[in-house]
Amino acid sequence: MKTTSKSGLQAIFGETTVEETDQFKHIPVSQIDANPYQPRQQFDDEQLTELSQSIDQSGVIQPIIVRRKEGRYELVAGERRLRATQLAGHQHIPAIIREITDVESMEYALLENLQRTNLNPIEEAQAYEKLATALDLKQSDLAKRVGKSRPYVANMLRLLNLPETVQQLLIDGQLSNGHGRALLGLKNRSQMELLAEQAVHHYWNVRQIEKKVQQLNEDVSHETKKATPRNIFIESEERQLEQFFGTKVQIKQSNNRGKIEIEFMTDEDLERILQLIKQES
């Protein structure tokens, strides 16, 4: 993304970065198509109504960004402003017309939402996953691209390993990403949905979930030890690997031979694990 000095168009647009090839005009909202890479899937109706009322009174202060596509315009950034303008009944909206690629459009949409902290945890995780796939980025490179630490990005991506019903609780705001990460510590994944429902019902904080997860894991370990006594060193290594990969890991050994099993739930989860292995090799 190129940046020019704060003069001309940029002086008008304030914080909007303006490039030399940009064009500015008021365009019909009916000619603007949605951004297919928009990471945000839920919009607060009350906030949109408030913004539409402001736009009705004062107009759109900061223009949206669009690109030309197949004789129409495709939104790049500014979906809340566009929706609020439509809600206010306005037929035109100020826009910067920019020449960018599909990948750049995805980046704009993601970064705009991240900077405004408008995404729920699952939307944010999905956005990271899409961007990493589109740009073929390792987690460390992805983290630099979005201005986050690698552990932060890795933890967000781990949320996509949660069952869909639990993910929905994060989307609805009933559980936080901290709750989700705590639930991922469960060794018995079949208990995850029930524990998540209990957390919502009893208004548990993250610490309370972590304590419950620890209790359940100790029960599982106790039952396993009763069935087949295990090497303490092997169990310690399993715990470290589970923390690193963000999923269940089993080391199976017999007569000086054995194998390491790393659990994955989806193709995307497998790709995430493979990237971690490649980074360490």
Rank of each mutant, 00 (worst) to 15 (best):
K6P: 10
G8W: 12
Q10A: 05
T16I: 11
E19W: 01
E20G: 02
E20F: 08
T21D: 14
Q23S: 08
I27V: 06
I27N: 08
V29A: 05
I32M: 00
N35W: 03
P36V: 00
Y37H: 11
P39A: 05
Q42D: 11
F43Q: 10
D44G: 06
D45A: 13
Q47F: 09
Q47Y: 09
Q47T: 14
L48N: 08
E50R: 12
L51P: 02
L51I: 14
Q53C: 04
I55R: 01
V60R: 04
I61C: 09
I65P: 05
V66S: 04
R67Q: 03
V76I: 14
L82P: 02
Q86E: 15
Q86K: 15
L87G: 08
G89K: 07
H90R: 13
H92M: 11
H92L: 02
A95E: 07
I97P: 11
R98L: 13
E99H: 02
T101K: 04
D102K: 13
V103M: 07
E104P: 05
Y108P: 05
A109M: 02
L110S: 05
L110C: 05
L114V: 08
Q115Y: 13
T117Q: 12
T117F: 09
N118C: 04
N118H: 08
N118E: 14
N120V: 07
I122S: 02
E123N: 13
E124D: 07
A125Y: 03
Q126F: 00
A127W: 04
A134M: 14
A134T: 09
A134S: 13
L137Q: 08
K138D: 15
K138A: 15
K138N: 14
K144D: 05
S149A: 13
R150E: 10
P151R: 10
P151T: 03
V153N: 12
N155Y: 05
N155T: 14
N155Q: 15
L159V: 11
N161A: 09
N161P: 02
E164C: 06
E164P: 06
T165N: 01
V166M: 02
V166H: 01
Q168R: 05
I171L: 00
D172S: 14
D172L: 15
G173Q: 14
Q174V: 10
S176M: 03
N177C: 06
G178A: 11
R181G: 07
G185H: 12
L186G: 07
R189E: 14
A196M: 03
Q198F: 03
A199S: 13
A199L: 12
V200W: 09
H202L: 15
Y203G: 08
W204G: 00
V206L: 03
I209A: 06
K211G: 00
Q214C: 07
Q214I: 15
Q215Y: 11
L216A: 03
N217F: 08
T228M: 01
P229K: 13
P229S: 11
N231S: 15
I234R: 10
E235N: 05
E235A: 03
S236C: 01
E238V: 02
E238K: 03
E238S: 04
Q240L: 15
L241F: 09
Q243P: 08
K248F: 03
K248Y: 04
V249A: 06
Q250E: 05
S254R: 09
S254P: 07
K259H: 12
I260N: 10
F264P: 01
M265G: 11
T266P: 02
T266G: 00
T266L: 03
D267A: 13
D269L: 01
R272Q: 14
R272D: 13
Q275S: 09
E280G: 07
E280W: 06
E280M: 12
E280D: 06
